[in-house]
Design a protein around this nucleic acid. Structure first.
Length: 475
DNA sequence: GTTAGGG
DNA sequence: CCCTAAC
């Protein structure tokens, strides 16, 4: 059973999830309704004696509910699952384990999981002791192995509780446990300066360790991710913007100006001029034969008249959404906000610029979680896993926000302290804990632009372990 | 399609 | 938040 770690090596992440997902669906059909309302994780562990014997016959360790089969081939998983289900008195318990681990892309599930449980690994809590603080979603199979390997007795139950919290059914039946995880999360945020509570990938002496590090030396994944995330990339060289080169004629310059002005008040994603323009540049095959240019020009005129109305309206939705978000305390229900947005859009002819949506603190924390776990630059990954329900936050938005956070916490140059002080107080105060965490993360995952200075700062930090943040800004 | 960076 | 170049 110890060889279970090899799962991560042998199987592609995608195919692993997919195969498990399929399996989970299959097995789901075979599940029977629970006999008791108490759907507890511990139920899965409490075998009756004869069941236990039966289970042993299947040559599977009783703790191995078919998830940690070292050979992840379909057949193996399938039979193991079925065997386990045969002998389990509480089938739903096993079902929970399966679904919790095999459908990591469920939006709802994930939002819950990250909002409330993402810090499980961070907290050195004895009750929730999971060796090596495995990140729950990404390495769920790793957790399973850890589980089978180490955890016994009450630790098992606690662990299962935390593990199953990512399953919807358990979540709905045990809301209290979520509060507890919320507390954990908060406690981490609040005590960030405490050196004992560092993210799992930050060792005490400040050396960087991959967040995905599994416990064994067998984890090639950790190596790769370390390389992937931690590698300090060089700044991309950038040519002067093509726009300024190509549009040399006065006419096109003026057009460009107009478009700029207009675009500041227009959102033209579906059929806007900007899209038309760029498509014509890149894909000539879609170009309309002759009236293309005139079309391009003609369409700009009416948009300018919309600018003032947009300015009026751009205020209200942001407010509304802020209220919604503060009400839902972190887990935003985007069906509502999306409805509002589409409503606003339809009211304003569908050509509004994407209005400014204030980043809530919970969103920022989510982003920080994502950066902590996936590293800087994995914006799509973070978006898919953490912001999957936030339609309005694109990977680019995440990137921009991260950049702004760096500015706000003085990690990036270009933000003077007094400016930021002014802004922070009058405009949108970010909790100090958030800023600290940004600095911390920034010292771990170097922003590409800042790579040289980051190295020296990191070196400084290592050489003087008394400081928590290697790049503390002088007060 | 994704990301970095200038605006 | 938008745009564009680079990847």
């Amino acid at each position: 059973m110890m060889q279970g770690f090899s799962i991560g090596e042998k199987v592609e992440e995608e195919s692993f999830y997919h195969s498990l997902e399929e399996e989970a669906i299959d097995v789901d059909c075979l599940l029977v309704e629970p006999r008791s309302d108490q759907v507890s994780a511990s139920g899965a562990w409490c075998y009756e004696e004869d069941n236990l014997r039966k289970c042993k016959k299947t040559e599977n360790a009783p703790y191995n509910l078919g998830v940690t089969n070292p050979n992840i081939n379909m057949e193996g998983v399938d039979t193991t699952c079925l065997n386990a289900l045969d002998v389990l008195p509480h089938e739903v318990g096993a079902g929970n384990v399966l679904t919790a681990n095999s459908s990591p892309c469920n939006d709802y599930l994930l939002d819950i999981g990250f909002d409330h449980g993402a810090f499980i690994g961070y907290v050195s809590n004895e009750g929730l002791h999971v060796r090596n603080s495995q990140f729950p979603i990404e390495g769920s199979y790793g957790i399973q192995n850890t589980l089978a390997e180490n955890i016994s007795g009450i630790e098992c139950q606690n662990y299962m509780l935390s593990n199953c919290i990512f399953g919807t059914s358990t979540y709905s039946s045990e809301p209290k446990s979520l509060d507890r995880f919320e507390d954990f999360s908060n406690s981490f945020i609040d005590q960030e300066n405490n050196q004992d509570i560092l993210p799992p990938h930050v060792s005490q002496n400040g050396l960087k360790v991959s967040p995905f590090r599994l416990d064994g030396p067998t984890s090639t994944r950790s190596v790769q991710d370390h390389h992937d995330v931690g590698a300090i990339t060089n700044k991309r060289s950038r040519k002067p913007t093509k726009r300024y080169i190509d549009e040399s004629s006065l006419l096109s310059l003026e057009n460009s100006k107009k478009r700029r002005e207009a675009s500041s008040g227009t959102k033209v994603k579906p059929s806007g001029i900007r899209r038309v323009k760029s498509q014509n540049e890149v894909k000539p095959k879609e170009k309309m034969p002759s009236f293309d240019i005139s079309f391009d020009k003609a369409i700009q005129v009416p948009f300018i008249s919309h600018v003032p109305t947009e300015c009026q309206k751009s205020i209200s939705p942001a407010k509304v959404e802020n209220e919604i978000e503060s009400n839902s305390s972190g887990h935003e229900d985007d069906s509502e906000t999306t409805m509002i947005r589409s409503k606003m859009r339809s009211e304003t002819n569908g050509n509004q610029r994407k209005h400014h949506r204030v980043w809530s603190v919970s969103e920022v924390k989510k982003l920080l979680d994502g950066v902590a776990h996936f590293g800087v630059g994995k914006w799509t990954h973070i978006k898919k896993l953490l912001f999957s329900s936030s339609v309005h936050r694109t990977p680019v938005d995440l990137k921009d926000k991260w950049r702004n956070l760096l500015k706000a916490s003085h990690v990036l140059k270009g933000s003077r302290i007094e400016d930021d002080h002014k802004r922070n107080q009058s405009w949108r105060p970010l909790p100090k804990s958030v800023l600290c965490r940004v600095r911390e993360l920034a010292s771990i995952y170097a922003y590409p632009r800042e790579s040289p200075s980051k190295i020296s700062k990191l070196a400084q930090h290592i050489s003087s372990p008394g400081r928590v943040n290697g790049n503390k800004v002088p007060a």
